[in-house]
Simulated scan of single mutants.
Amino acid sequence: MKLNTLFVAAVLASTTLSSCVFDTASENQLKYTHTTLVDGDAYAFFRSVGAIAPYEVDYAKHVGTVGNAQAKDAASKVSQFFTEMLPQMDSLATKFHVDFPILGQEKYATEADHAAHSVTTATDSTADSTAVAATAPAPVMHTAPSHAAYTDEAYLHHVQHQVGLVKEQLRRLSRNTNKELRDFAQSKTEAVAQLFTAVGGKEDAHAHH
């Protein structure tokens, strides 16, 4: 009886240890090799939409303070759509071992923000030129479009293009072999189509950009 008890305990301990080792190995695989559990199309979706979404949310905040009624309405709808989708993408990325948020992604900045960032960067670079930090790449500060002064027309054209790109990425993901990712994309199909129309997009118009 005592031998049987010891045998069962040893099996349980071995199973637990194997499980812990497997979990640790899986975590290390993502950390050091960045191996994911998604295919190329799904990875492209996370990289592309994962960079677009936070950028457009920040851009929309600025438009909300300077845009006309049409631009503000478009910005509000864009911000709501991406704000709701980002945490869902984050959960899926975590589950399927995709690095998220996207490292080094562009950050929207006004002309004033961009100027302040440039001054800060120049000041920091003179502090200690011999110090080298092993850190992730800093986000790119980008004023859309092309550092030009804001106009409502430029914003609407920009956001039509960006929402069109996301719409296409979701269309591709809706055919993915991963059922959970496919269901996620399909649940966004109607919403992104409505958003595309609401910001002035025409069917297939984004294909001409």
Rank of each mutant, 00 (worst) to 15 (best):
A134F: 08
D90Q: 14
V49R: 07
Y150T: 07
H142S: 12
A71M: 03
E56F: 09
N68M: 02
K179V: 10
K107C: 04
V166N: 13
E84P: 04
S91R: 05
Y59K: 12
V163N: 08
A138S: 15
Y59E: 13
A60E: 00
V159T: 08
V159G: 04
G64W: 08
V49C: 10
D99Q: 09
E168I: 01
S146R: 05
M85T: 09
V163I: 13
V63E: 09
F100C: 10
K77P: 08
A115E: 10
M141P: 01
H157Q: 05
P87I: 08
V57H: 04
Q80P: 03
D113W: 01
A112V: 12
S118L: 14
V63W: 11
A51K: 12
L86A: 06
Q70R: 14
A60D: 04
E168W: 06
M141K: 08
K61M: 01
K95S: 04
N176H: 14
P137K: 04
D90G: 09
Y155C: 08
V166Y: 07
H142E: 09
S76T: 11
A109T: 09
A75T: 06
H114Q: 13
E111A: 15
P101Q: 07
H114W: 01
H62L: 06
L156D: 07
M141Y: 08
V166T: 11
T126C: 08
Q162Y: 03
V63A: 09
A109R: 00
H114M: 11
Q80H: 02
S129F: 06
D128Q: 15
D113I: 05
D58R: 09
N68Q: 12
H158C: 05
P101T: 05
S125W: 07
H161C: 00
V166D: 13
F96E: 03
V49N: 15
Q169M: 07
N68T: 07
Q162F: 00
A116F: 01
P87L: 13
V98D: 06
L170A: 02
Y59G: 00
S118A: 14
T65L: 14
K179A: 15
H97V: 06
H142P: 00
L86Y: 05
Q169I: 00
A51N: 10
S125V: 01
D152K: 09
Q169H: 13
V57T: 08
V57Y: 03
H161M: 10
Q162N: 15
P137H: 03
Y55N: 14
A109K: 05
H157P: 00
T177E: 12
H117F: 09
V140I: 08
P137I: 02
M141Q: 11
A93V: 01
L173C: 09
K167Q: 11
D128C: 15
T123W: 03
A136V: 00
A74N: 11
